[in-house]
Every structure is written in structure tokens, then in C-alpha cells.
Design a protein around this nucleic acid. Sequence first.
DNA 1: CGCATTTTTGACCGATTGGACAAACGTTAG
DNA 2: CTAACGTTTGTCCAATCGGTCAAAAATGCG
Lengths: 212, 212
Amino acid sequence: MDAETPVRRRRTRIQTEKRELILDAALDVFSQHGFRGATIDQIAEAAGMSKPNLLYYFRSKEAMFTTLIERLLQTWLAPLRELDDIGDPIGELRSYIRRKLEMARDYPRESRLFANEILQGAPRIQHLIEGELKPLVDEKAALIKGWMKAGKIARTDPWHLIFSIWATTQHYADFDIQVRTVLGPDRGGDGRFEDAARYLEQLFLEGLRPKG
Amino acid sequence: MDAETPVRRRRTRIQTEKRELILDAALDVFSQHGFRGATIDQIAEAAGMSKPNLLYYFRSKEAMFTTLIERLLQTWLAPLRELDDIGDPIGELRSYIRRKLEMARDYPRESRLFANEILQGAPRIQHLIEGELKPLVDEKAALIKGWMKAGKIARTDPWHLIFSIWATTQHYADFDIQVRTVLGPDRGGDGRFEDAARYLEQLFLEGLRPKG
DNA sequence: CGCATTTTTGACCGATTGGACAAACGTTAG
DNA sequence: CTAACGTTTGTCCAATCGGTCAAAAATGCG
């Protein structure tokens, strides 16, 4: 039944707490070194416990990873789920971009872990991309297409529009080192996310052609 | 003197050929599994030779990787180097975006290898980012800033503009699996790069706000 | 308290890893 | 032919890996 915990029936308070502790440490290590680059010993040390103790709460390294990434995907897709037909389309897209950028700022580990998995060809989550992500994107693409037909936003490809929002926002988490290095000590500080937010808003709404 | 080959003075024709063969195989394996995920045995098999034979041409796994990524960075930055003040600014940016997208299409292995390294915090190429990439970006950012002052393109942040071009184009190499899965069998075929090119041109030039 | 259950750990194991090394093989110039 | 040099490989090694296991420690419970 339960493939992750050694306990069949019910989950102890300690088990719940320790599992969360381990998952947090595992997120640290996995996001920094990838699945193969991470070792159970590293995760154990980050969690402040012994290796066999980790394997008491998770049956394998793989189990930690899948538990982590399945949970992660949900929070990662939440902003897209909230995209709906209530407000005005431009405002909806603007706040979606803003929320995705905030997630890149506040949850860079999650973004990197996801990026790492996709980079390697998504060997462990391909079924989730097909079964969850694709249907959601198709649904939202249809919504966006409706906005285009109604003349609310410019006509273009909704799928690639979503890709470009993902790419530009997650770039600030996944390529953080490069961004900060290129921006330098002064411009690469905490303010870089506000700069990015301002820039992206202009890019997506106005483009680069001069107004004159 | 030469830290990579076993031969001090000169490089044989066989050495030159075999080193290229190995580097190509190494690019395959490294780009798919990352540095730690790749094994010398995998590279050896991909190159059709034995493991000790590999280590005759490259003193270590690390030597293969650094040789590969240092060379790669040059070709990867070439399109940005070509950005200059000759043509009109809009056309320059448009062709830069097109060339970067073509590179994502034609050299996905290089893109993924680079992305993988940056994701892990660029432990092996940080000096290149500081010493080569940053100065180049600063130089081109100044060029773009001149275009803005001259009213040739809209005023915005040149650094983040460059980031967004990198992010959107490389996304089609690095997140290829996700892109193809989400687009589905029909739209995710070979035509996806033309669709992306059309979309990105509109995004960067016009943005999403309707013209009416 | 005493007993059962849960939690923790030291010791250990087989497999895989990057790499060393010497011997064998191939090639070429004298 | 043969000596010298470049190339290739079988074998081996220490380190590290994910994971097991039995026993000890802690905890909960009557």
C-alpha cells in the first residue's frame, strides 16, 4: 500500500516531522547536485541524522526524490492554475508573470530541481508532464486563445507564450549565479528581482519597438 | 606545459583525431547526465574505445569536461559577439534572437551542458563567466543603451533584455522534452522552431498588448 | 514499574567509480 | 631486421556508492 514509509497503517508524529526534515535537506542537496550527484550521506548530514536513519523513513534515494518532485510540481503549477477569466486578460497575464518571478525568487531550490530533471530528459517525471502539466497548459492555452479572439490581447501562439513566461522567470532561479555575476556586485544585489519585474512587464506588454 | 596530453612537445595526427572523437562522445554523455552523472566508461563506449585508452588522451574526467566547456563557451558567445552597430538596431536584435534560436536547435547538447554547469553554481567555469562573459555582456549592454538613447528601440534594461533572449531561446534546447511533450505529437514536431521564431519575434518587437 | 513498539546506529556488503600501471601491440625510420 | 616511439588494453586498486541488518536506545503505554 504505502510504498514510502516502513509503517503500514498509520504515520506517527515523529515520522511526519522527520520526513519533512529529510525532504527539506534532500531538496537542498538534490537541487545543488542533481539526482546522481547527490549522495544519501550528504542528505543525512544536511538533515543532521545518520544514513541508516534516513533509510528508515524513506526506503530509497529514489523514494525521496519522487516524493519531493511530485509535491514540488503542484506548488510550481499553482500560479498557472489560478489563471482564469475573471479579471481583464492583460492584468491576469501580468500578475501571472509577477507570481512566477516571485516563486523564482522565493523557491529557487524547487526551480533548480525541476530544471535539472527536465534537462536530463525528465526520466522520473515524464508521466507527470504528460498527465498533469500538458492538460493544464492546453486548458490555459485555450483560455488565452479566447482572449485573442476577443481582441483583448495580441494574436500569437499561446503555448509559446506560456513557454516564454516560464523561461524568462525561471531563468532568475536556474541561472542565478550567471545573472548575479553578470550584473555585478551593485546591480546584482537584492534589487535584481524588481529590475527583472519591471523589464519583463515592459517586454511582455509593449515589446522593444519604440513608441514614437 | 600541456596539461592535457601525455605528449609534451607536439601533437600527433592520431592524437588530434582521437581527442576530437572523445570530446564528441563526452559531449553526448555529459550533456545527458551532467558531470557527476557521467562515467568514463560511458564516454569510452560512446567513443568506441577502452577506458584506459581515454585516459591516455585525457588525463582525467575533469580534463575532458573543462576542455569541452571552455571551447563550447566560445561558440556559444559567438552570436553575441556579432551584435554590432552596423545595421539598424531592431534588425540586429531580431537576427541575434534568430541566431540564438538556431543554435538551440542545432546544438542542443552544448546548451544543456552549459545549463547543467550553471545550475550547479558554475563550480568549474566561474572564472570564465567573470572574465569573459561579463565583460562581453557589459560591452553589448552599452551598445544597446546607445540605441535606446538614440530612440531606435524602447528604453529598458539592456542586461535583462539579454537575459530574456538567452532564456527564451535556450529554453527550446534545455527544456526540449517538456516543450515537445506539451506541444504534442502534431505541433511538437520539427516545425516547433519556426513557430517559436515567429512567436519570439512578435514578443520582442510588439509585446502582447493589442494594437487596436 | 515492565513490556512492546518505534527509532537510531555501527558495522558491514556488493557494486560501481575514477584512475594507475605494466605489458602488449602497432608503426615507422634507420 | 630492429630499436624507438606511439598506441591500446587487461588487470588491478582504493574510494565511494546505495542499501542491509541486527542490535541498541528511546519512547509510549498499561
